[in-house]
């Protein structure tokens, strides 16, 4: 079995209100020295061996997991 870890993150310049809110809450809790918080979505996709796994997962990202307008994605095959 192959596990593909897909990491979907916001493109540079796209606002991340969830990250900013988390940053603020962490600061309110007394953590200092924080520079930024960014939210990232990770999917672990379990696949059968064989075939062009990378191409398949790339297609999954393009067709559902990421919206090219705001997202960059990366795939790690484990």
């Amino acid at each position: 079995m192959v596990v593909a870890e897909v990491r979907v993150e916001l493109k540079k310049g796209v606002a991340d209100p969830e990250g900013k809110n988390t940053l603020k809450a962490l600061e309110l809790l007394g953590f200092d020295g924080l520079k930024d918080v960014k939210t990232v979505k990770v999917f672990d996709i379990y696949l059968e061996d064989g075939g062009d796994v990378e191409k398949k997962v790339d297609e999954m990202c393009r067709r559902l997991l990421a919206n090219p307008v705001i997202h960059n994605y990366s795939v790690k095959i484990k």
Partner: peptide
């Protein structure tokens, strides 16, 4: 074929 826009999280989160 792929989305040309997005409805993203509100600025207020």
């Amino acid at each position: 074929e792929f989305p040309e826009a997005v409805l993203g999280t509100n600025d207020s989160a």
